[in-house]
Simulated assay, not measured.
Amino acid sequence: MQELIKTIFTESIQAQIAAGEVLQDALESGALSIAQTLLNGNKLLSCGSASCDMLAKHFAGLLVNFFETERPCLPAIPLTAEHRQLSYSASTEDHDLFARQVRAFSQSGDILLVVSVDGSEKTVISAVEAALTKDMKIIALVGDDGGELTGLLGPNDVEIKVPSKRPARIVESHLFNLHCLSQLIDNTLFPQEDM
Rank of each mutant, 00 (worst) to 15 (best):
S46W: 01
V142K: 05
G154S: 12
M136D: 05
G119N: 07
A76M: 06
I5R: 09
V142S: 14
D145W: 09
S108P: 06
H179C: 09
L112K: 10
C73R: 05
V124H: 03
S120D: 14
L97C: 07
R103D: 09
G109D: 04
L132C: 02
Y88C: 03
V22E: 14
A99Q: 03
Q107S: 15
A168Q: 13
H58K: 12
L175F: 10
I160H: 07
N65E: 11
K165S: 15
F190T: 04
A168W: 05
L4M: 12
D25K: 11
L39D: 02
M54R: 11
H174F: 08
R103W: 04
E82T: 10
M1R: 13
C47G: 06
R103F: 09
E70K: 13
E21T: 04
Q107A: 13
P163L: 05
C180E: 08
S173R: 00
A76H: 09
K6E: 14
D157R: 00
A130L: 06
A35N: 08
L23T: 04
S87T: 03
Q36A: 13
P167R: 02
A50M: 11
A90I: 05
Q24E: 12
N40W: 01
D96Y: 08
P155D: 15
S87K: 01
L152K: 04
V162W: 03
R166I: 13
I77L: 15
Q101Y: 07
E159Q: 15
A131F: 06
S173K: 00
T10M: 12
S89M: 06
E68P: 00
S49A: 12
T123M: 12
E129D: 10
G48C: 06
E68A: 12
Q85N: 12
A76K: 08
A127S: 05
A18F: 03
K134D: 02
S49C: 04
S120H: 11
Q107K: 15
L113G: 03
D144I: 00
P78G: 04
S51G: 14
D94K: 09
Q107L: 07
K6W: 01
N187W: 10
L86D: 01
S49K: 00
A18G: 05
K134I: 00
K137D: 04
Y88V: 08
Q85L: 13
H95Y: 11
G20M: 11
E3A: 07
D194I: 12
S108N: 11
A56S: 10
V22H: 07
I17C: 09
L45H: 06
D118S: 14
T7C: 03
S29M: 10
I34R: 02
Q183L: 14
S120N: 15
D53P: 00
P72G: 08
L181I: 08
K165L: 15
D144Y: 11
V124R: 04
I185W: 07
R169Y: 07
A90D: 14
L23C: 07
E68F: 10
F176D: 08
F176Y: 11
